[in-house]
């Protein structure tokens, strides 16, 4: 069974067709890098995958549950980091993560274990009792990851998890994502192409609301090779999405 399954997603805002028939399947163990220029429809697609946004057409399911017909069941299997890692700034990291965990139905015993694991894994000990408003961008992003992981979901949808992080933090985030990847289906949107080569097992590129490439990073590079010379992923990205936009 595909853990993430979307077919023919369409979303139009006033006159602009932001997403135009996007289909996507992600199975267990895969980390899919979701690429595209700004405004290509990445975030809108992710919002439909999570059930936050209702599509004009098409369906999406998480772990076999339709996100619109059976939203509660679908959301139980989903961890989601929205764009910008929003959180309640007036709460401390500990209170916020406990709140999300309880809202997800974790019992106090399980919640205690999960919180301890988050401190360890996401490296939050230094800021555990600080209000989120007072944290640096890097820590805020980590809190966002921790809330997405708190219930150990099968499906993770992360909208720009490394945006605004410094090189060390980016490295740590990639390590973390790679470490949790086995057994989960992960979709990551990003602008950082090196990231895709480092952690993603598949690349999906969208431009103007349509999927224009869906392959492993290696296959994508091979297909674009000239005289046996692989181009950089950036060159491929620019040639695919640049010509579309022109």
């Amino acid at each position: 069974m595909q853990l993430v399954q979307a077919s023919g997603l369409v979303k139009t805002f006033s006159r602009l067709r932001a997403v135009d028939g996007v289909s996507l399947e992600v199975s267990r163990g895969e980390v899919v890098g979701f690429l595209g220029p700004n405004g290509a429809g990445k975030s809108t697609t992710m919002k439909m995958l999570t059930g936050f946004l209702e599509p004009d057409a098409g369906t999406a399911s998480i772990a076999g549950h339709d996100v619109f017909a059976d939203p509660i069941a679908a959301r139980r299997h989903l961890g989601y980091l929205p764009e910008g890692a929003p959180a309640y700034g007036d709460m401390t990291v500990a209170d916020f993560l406990a709140f999300v965990g309880r809202m997800r139905g974790l019992s106090n015993a399980v919640l205690g274990e999960r919180l301890a694991e988050m401190v360890e894994r996401v490296n939050l000990a230094a800021v555990w009792n600080r209000p989120i408003d007072a944290l640096s961008k890097g820590f805020k992003r980590r809190v966002g990851i921790a809330q997405a992981l708190i219930h150990d979901p099968e499906v993770l949808i992360l909208d720009e998890p490394t945006d605004g992080l410094d090189p060390n933090q980016k490295h740590d985030m990639r390590e973390l994502i790679s470490a949790i990847a086995p057994g989960k289906a992960i979709v990551i949107s990003t602008h950082i192409l090196e990231e895709v080569e480092a952690i993603c097992s598949r690349v999906v590129i969208i431009a103007e609301g349509k999927v224009v490439a869906d392959a492993t990073p290696a296959a994508l590079l091979d297909a674009a090779a000239v005289d046996g010379q692989r181009p950089t992923l950036e060159t491929v990205f620019r040639s695919i999405t640049g010509s579309k936009a022109a």
Binding site: K47, F52, I72, G84, A87, G89
Partner: peptide, 14 residues
């Protein structure tokens, strides 16, 4: 404004 609504409404709550 803060975007928390996106997080809140993708939790398994009604």
């Amino acid at each position: 404004r803060s975007g928390v609504i996106e997080l809140l409404m993708t939790l398994p709550v009604r």
